[in-house]
Design a protein around this nucleic acid. Structure first.
Lengths: 227, 227
DNA sequence: TAATAAATAGCACGACCGTTCGTTCTTTTT
DNA sequence: AAAAAGAACGAACGGTCGTGCTATTTATTA
């Protein structure tokens, strides 16, 4: 019941070989998600999208009940991509700090690979959607919440593992980490300068430096911050 | 030559009493700037805007040569507002750290007062504009650059004043501070929760804590980070 | 290969977009 | 008070939007 406007239920679940319509629909949605990061969901027109994927407006439109349905499907597609490209690759890593760093690397790499020309899909459409209530907005908020919850979980686990001081304000820590990622997204999209990604990474490390339990308490005054 | 589509040159400069058309135009532009932070510059339609300010499409449109001209005027208006609401109030403060904190307080207060429903105007339209070249985009980039340059100047001055360690990477510091502000904007607009502003402030303080010369070197192990 | 279903194209619609025009009402100047 | 200028109006334009219809082509299946 979660996926919007799912096609005729396949034989029994996993699509053995995707039918023409399915792959066509997937191609449309991927192109649409990319376009939406630059033009916005509401700024994306069926005509432009049809031209982009090389079909007629009506031919494309037959795959969706309405524009709103299309938008929801685009968000769902972006959620799947975000999951497979950012989250899943990092979940192999051990819990705690290691996984946290893996998630951050994964996210920054996802920006660097320019999967979406407008940067992170959800950062791009979140602001436009937050004044336009509806299922699409709800889904976007859900993905963002889940992302922040994931970061929070890593920090909490790191505390349990003794990697991070028990006394640190977890919410504050997650805010600061997320800030570095948002800044990376914004500034990298604006400037196309990979240096922004390096600075984001360094910024996260500087945040972590403050959180880590100084098991080796006061080595040196130097090496206080990164880069 | 900088202001776009300036009206008949007034007697000699400062408008003694604004004529009807001038105040009308100003009202249009202020409403437009607010609308643009939620709908985007291209998503803003003349009809909606006319309804918002309570006039006819054509009556409103008589003030501008074209939509592009209107957009540029909106950006210019937002730049003036940003200047008077954020920058100027902070310029009374002394150079260096004091002014830096004044700028940050000023910016966060500007968010909190919700002058624009979509948060910071420039953050809102920057991403939409960066794939749409033109004078409006150029102006937005210019404002953002000037803002970052201002933060940079504060940090450099603080170094000269001995408030900040000479060895810190200024670019990195500015990135991290700007990150906190961007996160405040994004998360506060999304959640409407003032806690985000507090966390942003605390985040900035945590960044500064690392930069400040430990003239009083090792007071306590405690009080290492804010909140 | 023939039958059947799915996928796409063509076309037309009402609504709204930015834009222009001619007109009217209001303000300023003479 | 007459004349000129400014400001706002309603109507209408060509274009594009999202959205339905009806064919026609292409895939799947028997």
């Amino acid at each position: 019941m979660s996926a919007a406007s799912l096609p005729k239920p396949d034989s029994h679940g996993g699509g053995s070989r995707p039918t023409k319509g399915q792959s066509s629909r997937a191609a449309i949605l991927f192109a649409a998600a990319k376009l939406a990061t630059t033009k916005g969901l509401s700024g994306l027109s069926i005509g432009d999208l049809a031209a982009e994927v090389g079909m007629s407006k009506s031919g494309l439109y037959a795959h969706f009940k309405s524009k709103e349905d299309l938008e929801l499907a685009i968000v769902e597609t972006a959620a799947v991509i975000f999951n497979t490209e950012v989250i899943e690759p990092a979940m192999d890593a051990h819990k705690g700090l290691v996984r946290l760093r893996a998630l951050i690397d994964s996210f920054l790499s996802y920006l660097e690979r320019r999967l979406f020309p407008g940067g992170c899909f959800f950062a791009a459409v979140a602001l436009e959607l937050d004044t336009r209530p509806g299922p699409a907005r709800d889904r976007v908020v859900q993905v963002l919440d889940r992302w922040l919850a994931l970061l929070t979980e890593c920090v909490v686990d790191a505390q349990a593992l003794g990697e991070i001081d028990e006394e640190v304000d977890v919410t504050q820590a997650v805010f600061e980490i997320e800030a570095m990622l948002l800044a990376a997204n914004f500034l990298f999209v604006m400037t196309s300068d990979p240096a922004q990604l390096k600075q984001s990474r360094a910024g996260v490390e500087n945040v972590l430096l403050r959180l880590v339990t100084n098991a080796a308490p006061k080595k040196k005054a130097a090496a206080r911050s990164v880069s």
